[in-house]
Amino acid sequence: MEAATAVIAEIVRNVASLDDLERRHLDETLRWLGQTDDIFRRAKPATPARHLVSYVVLIDPDARAILLGHHRKAGLWLPTGGHADPGEHPFATAGREAAEEIGITAEFSVVGPEPLFLTITTTVGIGACHEDVSLWYVIRGDRTHPYQLDPREFSDQRWWSIDDFSTSETDPHLPRFLAKLRAALSR
């Protein structure tokens, strides 16, 4: 196992599972990491067919709100984030994506610098389908701040309630992530 893959395996081992599905995703991710070092996207859209992603979820914990953008390619309301570059630590990916897609320096002070959640998702939308192994990082935002998501990636943006989230046009795991986030915020 290459050093970069070993680092990611250690990150995955430290994610506490919310439920049986996340436990299965964690176990499958560790099996995948044990079988290959080809975990970073090398060519768009889908080489290799499964690769590592860092979601960067901007939340305002005081307003209990999450900022999502309407992703142009996926056609869904999604958090910001993106594919890890070859050899890139997923935490560095999260910081880079916050700068690129939100225009901010990420502040990982809500639940800490480790990913809160892990999912394996088959992508939808324009282009070849592939599987994203996504580490979900949480960064601090302020609902009153006028953020502008990257218009090349997102056609619209909106703050959503963490407690009363109400759209099916999103990542299929977002409602579960919000349940885990609510539990983390109550600690």
Score class of each variant (00 low, 15 high):
174 L>C: 10
83 H>E: 15
77 W>H: 09
36 T>Y: 04
99 A>D: 14
38 D>R: 14
166 S>R: 02
174 L>A: 11
186 S>L: 05
167 T>Q: 00
113 P>F: 09
61 P>C: 06
6 A>R: 15
62 D>N: 11
25 H>D: 13
45 P>L: 10
147 Y>E: 01
13 R>G: 08
22 E>T: 00
98 A>V: 04
101 E>H: 11
121 T>D: 07
100 E>A: 13
114 E>Q: 14
34 G>K: 05
15 V>P: 06
42 R>M: 09
154 F>T: 03
67 L>Q: 06
176 R>T: 11
17 S>M: 12
180 K>L: 00
10 E>Y: 07
144 T>G: 03
184 A>L: 12
19 D>P: 02
133 V>P: 00
8 I>V: 15
184 A>M: 12
42 R>P: 07
45 P>S: 14
91 F>S: 13
130 H>E: 05
108 F>Y: 08
168 S>Q: 01
86 P>D: 11
12 V>T: 06
165 F>D: 01
40 F>D: 06
43 A>Q: 15
1 M>F: 10
175 P>W: 02
162 I>C: 02
137 Y>K: 10
157 Q>G: 03
116 L>M: 04
66 I>K: 09
176 R>M: 01
94 A>S: 14
175 P>L: 07
26 L>I: 15
8 I>H: 09
96 R>P: 09
187 R>Y: 09
34 G>P: 01
70 H>P: 00
31 R>S: 13
182 R>Y: 12
78 L>K: 04
31 R>E: 14
142 D>F: 01
142 D>E: 06
108 F>H: 06
57 V>N: 05
43 A>V: 15
128 A>F: 02
106 A>C: 02
56 V>M: 04
95 G>N: 13
11 I>Y: 08
54 S>P: 10
114 E>V: 01
32 W>S: 03
103 G>D: 08
27 D>C: 09
57 V>Q: 07
37 D>P: 04
149 L>V: 12
16 A>S: 14
122 T>D: 08
104 I>R: 06
186 S>G: 10
96 R>V: 02
64 R>E: 13
167 T>N: 03
165 F>H: 02
170 T>E: 00
15 V>Y: 08
11 I>C: 08
78 L>G: 01
184 A>N: 04
3 A>S: 15
73 K>H: 08
96 R>D: 13
107 E>G: 03
148 Q>A: 13
13 R>H: 10
130 H>C: 00
77 W>K: 06
187 R>F: 07
128 A>T: 04
162 I>R: 04
122 T>R: 12
24 R>L: 13
68 L>I: 03
28 E>K: 09
38 D>W: 03
66 I>N: 04
128 A>P: 02
91 F>M: 14
158 R>Y: 00
121 T>P: 05
68 L>N: 01
129 C>M: 10
11 I>S: 11
9 A>H: 10
49 A>H: 13
83 H>Y: 14
131 E>H: 08
107 E>L: 09
172 P>Y: 14
181 L>Y: 12
127 G>L: 02
12 V>L: 05
22 E>A: 00
39 I>E: 09
129 C>V: 09
132 D>P: 05
158 R>M: 09
34 G>C: 12
62 D>T: 13
77 W>D: 04
111 V>I: 15
151 P>L: 03
122 T>V: 11
105 T>D: 12
153 E>H: 12
173 H>S: 15
140 R>S: 01
18 L>W: 13
93 T>L: 00
82 G>M: 10
62 D>K: 13
151 P>G: 04
